[in-house]
Every structure is written in C-alpha cells, then in structure tokens.
Computed example of a mutant assay.
Amino acid sequence: MTPELVTDTNIIRAEGITKRFGKFTALNDVSVSFPRGQLTAVIGPNGAGKSTFFNVISGAFPPTEGRVIFEGCDITGTPQHAFARLGIAKSFQITNVFPELTALENVRIAIQAMHSRFDIWTPRGRLTEMQEQAGDLLDLVGLREHRTRHAENLAHGEQRALEIAMALACDPRLLLLDEPTAGMSPEETLVMMELITRLADERTVILVEHKMKLVMGISNHLIVLHHGELLAEGTPDDIRENDEVRRVYLGQGSH
C-alpha cells in the first residue's frame, strides 16, 4: 500500500483484527485507531481479549484475519525483532530482564543491541557514550540510585521500571505496555502510573489494563474490549457515561 503522511493523526490502526486459537475466537473483527501523541488505555474485564490484542499489535501473534497499520505502512506479519527499528517498543506483563546483571548493564545491552548485534569491536569511547545513555534512561524511570544493583535484587516495581528503561533504548515513537502494574503494591502502582504519565508527554503510549479506575485519570483515550469484541471507545468521560461499559464492569469489585 502507499504510505500515508506521517502527519496522520493516528499512529497505529488495527483493521478487522480477528484471532482464533483452534475453535476459540479470542478477538472478533476489532477495528480501532490510536491517536498520535496520546495515552490510550485498552481496558476490559479478565478474559476480554486485551492481552491477545496486545500480542497482535506488538507482533507477537499474527492475526488470523485483518491488518495492523503503523504510520501508514502495513506491518502485519513483521518479525518481532524488527519492531524496535520501526520505532515501536514494548514491555510485557512478565518481567524480562537479565537478573544476574546490574540495572546499568541491562540498559546498556539494550542500547548496544540497537546499534549492532554482533559488534564485539565497539570502540571504548562508544561504550562510554552508551553507558551514559543507559544512566540517563535509568534516571528517567527513577532508578538513579540502583544503577549498580543486580536486577534480581530489585523490587518487583523496580524491575518493571528497568524493563521500561530497556524498552526506551530504541527511542520509540510508540511505547506498548501490557499490564505494567500487575503484581504491584498500591505504592508501587502509584509510582508506575506517574512514570507512565511522564513518558506519555514525549511519545505515544498504549497501555493494556483491566483495572478501569486505575487508568481513567491519566488516559486521553480509552478502548473497551469485552468477549474479544470492541465494546466502546472514546474519552474517559465518554466511557464513564456508557451504559454498556457500566453493565460489563458491574460486580468487577476492584475495578
């Protein structure tokens, strides 16, 4: 297809996304657009299809039907490892760091991977520059004081922040976060939501979450999935006033 102008108000679109696992349909004909420069939350009760949707738009799963369009280009079926070079970074629900390395080493390796995977002859000056970039990213996510701590010794919330710092190594235009507060204490959750808000000032963020109240105060745009289908989308006020959304969330005590 012919690429659209990058001035398109939507950075990424899902067009008619269906995903089946055998006879089970996890997503059914979902079409949504994500505004550039905004924080969009994809919400819905457990089992709504949110993580499957995240996996499709992040390239982990190919859709059974439909397309994913990023900045005007069809990226459906693009290998996951190519996403960072397109300007898309992601942080999954399960923390993915190198536990035996320090926080600084984790982020520096992520930066090195963006320059050359197999370059063992990197000049020392370049490594110093990467080290400084890694330090800046740790500062950004609030881990300045933990640079020399091994990742395995960080608290759960700190490990999630470290993973986000690693995702930011490619300086993405689009950051995808799958339930970034999963397993966190209330205190850790507040710190993470504040971090996400700051990150969204500099780039487009798509956040997958099942706790509606958690994202209502920070999101510009919300998409509600239910039983694998699009239930509603709009501003937080639109979603609060939507009768179908209220019905779906009734009895979902923690939401």
Rank of each mutant, 00 (worst) to 15 (best):
T2G: 12
P3Y: 02
L5F: 06
V6C: 08
D8G: 03
T9M: 15
A14E: 00
E15G: 06
G16C: 03
G16P: 01
K19G: 08
R20F: 08
R20S: 15
F21L: 09
G22H: 00
G22K: 02
G22A: 07
G22C: 03
F24K: 07
T25Y: 04
A26P: 15
A26C: 06
A26R: 01
S31D: 11
G37M: 03
A41T: 09
A41L: 04
V42K: 12
G44E: 01
G44K: 04
P45K: 05
N46I: 05
G49E: 01
S51Q: 01
S51G: 14
T52P: 04
T52K: 02
F53R: 01
N55Y: 11
N55H: 14
V56L: 04
S58E: 08
G59F: 13
A60C: 12
G66D: 13
G66N: 11
R67V: 14
V68N: 15
G72S: 10
T76Y: 09
P79Q: 14
Q80P: 06
Q80K: 11
R85I: 01
L86T: 13
L86A: 10
G87Y: 06
S91F: 06
F92V: 05
E100F: 00
L101H: 10
T102N: 08
A103L: 07
E105N: 11
R108Q: 15
R108H: 06
I111H: 12
A113C: 13
H115G: 05
F118C: 03
F118K: 12
I120Q: 07
W121Q: 11
T122Y: 03
G125K: 10
L127E: 08
T128Q: 15
Q131P: 05
G135V: 12
D136I: 02
D136E: 13
L137E: 11
L138D: 07
D139P: 08
G142Q: 05
L143K: 03
E145Y: 02
H146A: 07
T148V: 04
R149E: 14
R149W: 04
H150R: 14
E152D: 07
A155D: 15
H156Y: 15
H156N: 10
G157W: 01
G157N: 00
G157I: 03
A161L: 08
A161H: 02
A161N: 09
A161C: 08
L162A: 08
E163P: 02
M166G: 10
L174A: 05
L176F: 15
L177V: 13
E179N: 08
E179Q: 09
P180Q: 04
T181D: 07
G183L: 02
P186E: 05
V191S: 13
D201Q: 13
E202G: 09
R203C: 13
I206C: 03
I206V: 11
E209F: 02
H210V: 10
K213R: 09
V215Y: 00
G217Q: 13
I218R: 10
N220S: 14
N220R: 09
I223N: 10
G228V: 04
E229Y: 05
A232V: 09
E233K: 07
G234F: 07
T235A: 12
T235F: 09
T235I: 07
P236F: 01
R240F: 06
R240A: 10
R246L: 03
R247A: 13
R247Y: 02
V248L: 09
V248T: 05
V248C: 00
L250A: 12
L250T: 07
L250P: 01
G253P: 00
